[in-house]
């Protein structure tokens, strides 16, 4: 393996990690504050990609497509919170998992009804379609760099909201000591709705990042959701810092697993194992540290 390939794959891996972090951030915030586990988060990822493709097809404007997709997905998530998830906070994980699993089935099927079973594609904006040399002799697609920048910007945005705004402080407070916040008159319910909106928006960004690289099709959010859950578990449930670390690790390990294993142990066995690598990683982490890498505040 050449240095050039190594660098390229490392960046790919980190990029996938960033995308996973955006997904994991939403799940983690929702779990941290409301103790709810939401499988329909992957549907937000998928729907954002579909909406972007549809709006782009209609208007030919990337900007409009992105804005409509993100806004639409955030509103949808907040409506879901009000109608479906709110009554589930007090229930067990089983009810939460199953109701959100039901939503996954519904959304996947709605996608088929509206957009059909054939995969759709979102072309790369012409402005970002070239390649640049990131190291001498190492060309890299501009689009992928732009996407990483977008992910980092979204991550920073989240960090700013959490650390600098009143809402962010209330969110963090809600995760750590709910009763105290409630006693202080903070409206936890309104915050919960906001958190769903923010989480879905981040998932939407992840979906938009992925749309031009991956076929947009029904169920595309599901494997990503599973990866997200793996990230959350490796990082330590409820910890954003853990989610970030774990997301980057998973992104890199997954990417290299796919490249290296087929080379090392033959194409068939290698590609079989490469899909399993991160699950093995997760099992190993949990054997060593049964509650993940980073212990959360609560």
């Amino acid at each position: 393996m050449t240095i050039a390939l190594l660098v390229e794959q490392l960046i790919n891996g980190l990029q996938q990690g960033l995308m996973l972090f955006l997904m994991a951030a939403g799940v983690t915030l929702v779990f941290g504050i409301m103790r709810l586990i939401n499988l329909a988060h992957g549907s937000m990822f998928m729907l954002a990609a579909y909406v972007a493709v549809a709006v782009f097809a209609a208007t030919d404007s990337y900007l409009l497509a992105f804005i409509v997709a993100l806004a639409g997905i955030s509103v949808l998530a907040m409506l879901l919170e009000l109608a479906i998830f709110r009554p589930l906070y007090a229930r067990g994980h089983l009810d939460q998992l199953l109701a959100s699993f039901g939503l996954v089935l519904v959304f996947n099927e709605i996608a088929v009804m509206v957009w059909g079973r054939e995969p759709l594609y979102l072309s790369i904006p012409p402005l970002l379609s070239g390649q640049v040399e990131i190291l001498p002799g190492v060309p890299y697609p501009v689009y992928r760099l732009a996407v990483s920048a977008l992910a980092i910007a979204a991550g920073l945005g989240l960090w700013l909201i959490l650390s600098r705004t009143r809402l962010g402080m209330q969110m963090r407070g809600g995760a750590e000591r709910r009763e105290v916040m409630e006693a202080m008159g903070v409206n936890i319910r309104a915050i919960a709705t906001m958190v769903f909106g923010i989480g879905a928006c981040l998932a939407g960004v992840a979906g938009l990042m992925t749309a031009p690289i991956m076929p947009v099709q029904s169920g595309m959010g599901d494997p990503i959701l599973i990866l997200t859950l793996v990230v959350m578990i490796i990082g330590g449930v409820g910890s954003l810092r853990g989610a970030l670390i774990a997301a980057l690790i998973v992104g890199v390990v997954d990417t290299f697993g796919r490249i290296l294993l087929p080379q090392l142990i033959g194409l068939n066995a290698g590609s079989a194992l490469s899909n399993m690598v991160i699950y093995v990683l997760m099992a190993v982490v949990l054997v060593i540290r049964p509650t993940g890498l980073v212990r959360s505040a609560t």
Partner: peptide
Amino acid sequence: LALRTGGLYFIMITLAFTQMLFFFLQSQR
């Protein structure tokens, strides 16, 4: 392996196991 953990971790590790087997079976040409 799985019962060393509990609660949500247990749910997720069992989920991971079944996905692992799925991918393994899928890759068996």
